[in-house]
Write a protein that binds this DNA or RNA. Structure first.
Ligand SMILES: NC(=O)c1ccc[n+]([C@@H]2O[C@H](COP(=O)([O-])OP(=O)(O)OC[C@H]3O[C@@H](n4cnc5c(N)ncnc54)[C@H](O)[C@@H]3O)[C@@H](O)[C@H]2O)c1
Ligand SMILES: NC(=O)c1ccc[n+]([C@@H]2O[C@H](COP(=O)([O-])OP(=O)(O)OC[C@H]3O[C@@H](n4cnc5c(N)ncnc54)[C@H](O)[C@@H]3O)[C@@H](O)[C@H]2O)c1
Lengths: 224, 224
DNA sequence: ATACTCATGTGAAATGCTTCACAATTTATA
DNA sequence: TATAAATTGTGAAGCATTTCACATGAGTAT
């Protein structure tokens, strides 16, 4: 769906591969805490309900990280995956809309663990502007554009009502922010070069509904 | 792989197709409100940033809903899609864990619009048990299994800390609930026949991170 | 050393998904 | 009624992703 950048000679990596890398990252963190020194593609696959080939192929797009006969060094692989995903650094994130879902996100500690630091909050409700959420003072939405730029925000989470999401996003784009995580159930329009991901919970419930009605099972897990 | 499900020996429908049907449903609702009588695959595709063929193919798995030369009748197609997704009815949903994210979900009106009725809440915190959220009294988690069964709950949303999610799910499975929407960042184990979908926000942020890191050419050579 | 086992990395095959291309059907117009 | 325009539904082609299969390398035991 994303247009490949045309310039780099790099092969296009599929969305599924990236999502699986996220999952590997989480599992590697777990394995590290369980004091595993190395892990095989077989073990990783078992934990993720994938085939070992899938795991090896995914990793092979980015290099050779394993040792034949042994597997992958957990800590090292985790570092590599985190580098590939670009989470070996801090991302400065702003959150717009401190309502039900917005408030939940501000207090979510996993984001910080993965380098996503919510450092600014915006709302248009006078009762919320100026109030303190987890140490951050809520800014007036009027200043969205200037404050995003002045504070070097790189990602914005949109948690406002669907009716206003596009207006907010237009401003976000003007502030030259290139990554948006959107919770509003609308198809946002952004110029090319701006990345948008939608978080859509209805979609997952609907998938469950479909699966139940159709007795639809996920793809079978094979062996290698 | 195709187990005859007793009624139809139907072709396997991909996850992407189901997700797109969810999107069509949302767009069709919008078109209905905009007083469109019919819509072509071209128009639908434009709104969803897809190809017209994709739209037609998706729908064709389930029947012929359009008229050549005219397009699809909006209201009728919406009804058909809602039937396919199984959201032409009410699903009785329980929510476990009335914390940050759980509280946000209880107040989310879109769920009800699509037939997902949250009718029970569970928590283990004595301060929360017995309290009233949007007209629902929070039940003690101890009674999870019996109350899920007595109240004929068909779907459960899990919004408890990752460390306890598996225990909750084990009980949910015992209560013969066959659909789980999980917000905890863990790979849940469930017997086959139980459907689990994971809502994973870190994953989407990580995708954005990857996209940014990889689209950004090292020396500003990229024109994209 | 040699043999044996384990497990990676990777072309090639298999499978799955998307797009193409066009016959078929309907509406509009003269 | 004939012709042109619009648009569906679908087999087949074109791509993309996943899985297979195996050569290769590393560790271990005798
Ligand atoms: N609540 C949920 O569980 C949930 C789940 C999925 C998606 N969503 C979506 O997330 C979005 C927010 O949902 P919510 O339940 O938190 O709603 P909410 O009404 O509780 O919160 C919206 C917030 O946005 C603020 N806001 C409104 N207009 C604004 C503007 N022009 N500029 C800045 N801030 C503005 C409001 O003051 C409020 O604080 C909606 O689009 C909703 O569809 C919500
Ligand atoms: N907050 C977010 O934005 C966010 C985002 C994505 C995912 N999540 C995930 O959702 C889950 C909940 O997150 P949260 O921020 O709402 O946490 P939270 O601590 O605010 O809420 C957890 C709730 O679960 C309850 N609980 C704990 N143990 C329980 C048990 N054994 N039985 C029943 N209830 C129990 C607690 O009393 C609390 O009400 C976590 O797994 C978290 O990783 C949260």
């Amino acid at each position: 769906m994303d247009i490949p950048s045309g310039v780099t000679a790099r092969k296009r990596i599929s969305e599924s591969t990236i999502h699986r890398l996220s999952r590997y990252f989480r599992t590697l963190s777990l394995l590290e805490r369980e004091n595993f020194e190395t892990v095989s593609s077989k073990e990783l696959a078992k934990r993720e309900k994938l085939t070992p080939s899938q795991v090896r192929k995914d990793l092979s797009f980015f290099g050779s990280f394993g040792t034949r006969g042994l597997g992958y060094p957990v800590a090292e692989l985790k570092a590599k995956v985190s580098k590939i995903l670009g989470i070996d650094r801090v991302w400065r994130v702003a959150l717009v809309g401190i309502g039900n879902i917005g408030s939940a996100l501000v207090s979510y500690k996993e984001f910080i663990k993965q380098g996503f630091h919510i450092v600014k909050l915006f709302d248009n409700d006078q009762r919320k502007i100026g109030s303190n959420h987890k140490g951050i003072i809520v800014s007036d939405i009027k200043n969205l554009r200037t404050e995003l730029q002045d504070d070097h925000i790189e990602m914005v989470i949109v948690a406002v009502p669907a009716t206003v999401a596009q207006y907010i996003v237009d401003d976000v784009v003007k502030a030259e922010v290139k990554a948006i995580l959107n919770f509003a159930p609308v198809n946002l329009k952004v110029p090319s070069g701006v990345h948008v991901r939608n978080e859509n919970m209805e979609m997952e419930l609907e998938y469950l509904s479909f699966a139940m009605v159709n007795n639809h099972s996920p793809k079978g897990v094979g062996k290698d």
